[in-house]
Structures are given as C-alpha cells and as structure tokens.
C-alpha cells in the first residue's frame, strides 16, 4: 500500500486498466450492440464511476472489465498486461489477485462468520498463512468499523454492515482495482454515505483504483471522474475533477 502511494507521488500516474475499442453484442432476443467502441484508461488511485440510463451498457462494460465476461471485441489491459484471450483459470487467478468486487447485494456466505468471509479470497490466493490472513482480515474489518462483528455469522448483520463486510472481503488481497456494481443500490442514504466515504478513502489513501457503476447521481458527482454511457457508447468523459 505504501509503495503505491510513493509511486503516485514520485512519478506520473500509472494506467491500471485500459480498454481499446471494446464492443459487445447481445443476441437474445435480437442482435443488439450493447457496447460500441469503448476505449478509456483508468488510473492508479482514481475513483471512477460509470453512469448512464438503464440499458446504456454500463453494467455490461463493468462485467467485461471484471474479466468474468469474456465474449467481447476489442482489448482489455490490466496493469499493462493484455487480458483478452486468456484462459478461464488464468482470469480467475488475475481476479483473485488484482480485482475486488462489491455488488448491489453483499453475496456473503451465510454459514461463515464475517471474519471467515473476509478471509476467503486471501485463502484462495494462498500467499500468507492462516493466522496471518486472519490478522489481516481483522485489520480490514477494523478499518471498516466492524471489529466487534468479526465473529458473528454474516447473516446476523444489518444490510449496511453486510455491505461493509463485503467491501472488507474485496480489499483483503489489496487489489489494484475495486469494482462495484451499484454498491449503494440497496442501502439507505446514511449507509450509502458511509460506503462512499470508504471508497473515497481507499482511492485517495491507499492508491487503489475504483470503478463503480451507479445510478446515484450524488455518488457519481462526488467521484473523481464519471464516464457516461448511452447506447453502448461513451458520451461524456468528465476528467476535470481529476489531475
């Protein structure tokens, strides 16, 4: 984390994720171009939001960026590495190490405690021992103000708390990119504000890039940059607030 901050301060901003001429079709019920020639760069430490009307292709774009959707035209690069065309297992490993996800719903494993839920991606990565991961997970929960809930089953928490546990899980491997699909879509305004503050802190303090799809105009306005899509095309890349 510290090295990331140093890099930012010493050199120029690095491109963490970029797309070149991304295109995608849906065939059901009729052939329909969901993404058309989408090219943009996301920088280190940037809080980026994707907005647009429903059906504009913003979620479709996010899932292409997430490496989970592999059926598209054009190219995707993460940390300078070409992602397009890699095998599913390689993509899984890339996601595990470089991308954290927060969805509209928390998708926590209900039988596990919060702490164990947070630990799951790190245990998959297998870089650290169990105790070390446990410690790290506890630290993440502490940052998100959930240290007291660590040993409770995930299903016993309130919606806002669950979403914060999900954020802790997304951050456990210190990924370069945090992706959110309507991360506040299911929360009240108070909890939305909490999540927003966390995102802001993650990007500014730890230099992690955030790419989030949102409906929430306040959320989008307060982010570093907003990419607006309509009919699968980028119609506005407001970069004024950034740099």
């Amino acid at each position: 984390m510290n090295t990331l901050i140093e890099k930012t301060s010493i050199g120029g901003l690095e491109v963490v994720l970029s797309t070149r001429n991304l295109g995608k079709y849906f065939y059901d019920p009729v052939k329909f171009k969901a993404l058309d020639n989408v090219s943009f760069d996301a920088y280190e430490g940037e809080f980026l939001t994707l907005v647009g009307k429903s059906g504009s292709g913003k979620s479709t774009l996010l899932y292409c960026l997430s490496t989970m959707d592999t059926v598209y035209e054009g190219e995707l690069y993460i940390k300078g590495e070409k992602i397009t065309g890699k095998k599913p297992d390689e993509l899984a490993a890339i996601r595990n190490e470089n991308i954290g996800f927060v969805f509209q719903f928390h998708y926590l494993l209900p039988e596990f405690t919060c702490l164990k839920n947070v630990m799951i991606p790190a245990r998959r990565l297998g870089k650290y021992g169990y105790e070390e991961i446990e410690h790290k997970a506890y630290e993440k929960l502490k940052i998100l103000g959930l240290q007291d809930q660590a040993l409770k089953p995930a299903s016993k928490l309130s919606g806002g708390q669950q979403q914060r546990v999900a954020i802790a899980r997304a951050l456990i491997n210190d990924p370069a990119i945090l992706m959110g699909d309507e991360p506040t879509g299911n929360l009240d305004s108070k909890n939305s504000a909490v999540v927003f503050d966390i995102f802001k802190e993650i990007s500014s303090q730890y230099g992690q890039t955030i790419i989030a799809v949102t409906h929430d105009n306040d959320f989008a306005k307060a982010s570093d940059r907003t990419i607006e899509l309509a009919d699968g095309r980028i119609i506005d890349q407001d970069k004024n607030d950034f740099e």
């Binding site: 997430s66 899984a92 890339i94 998708y107 991606p121 998959r124």
Partner: peptide, 10 residues
C-alpha cells in the same frame, strides 16, 4: 458466483 468472482476457478 461470488467464489468464482473472487478468483476460484472451475
């Protein structure tokens, strides 16, 4: 789905 998203492979 979430396991696969967080990097579990087939």
């Amino acid at each position: 789905a979430i396991l696969k998203a967080t990097g579990f492979n087939g």
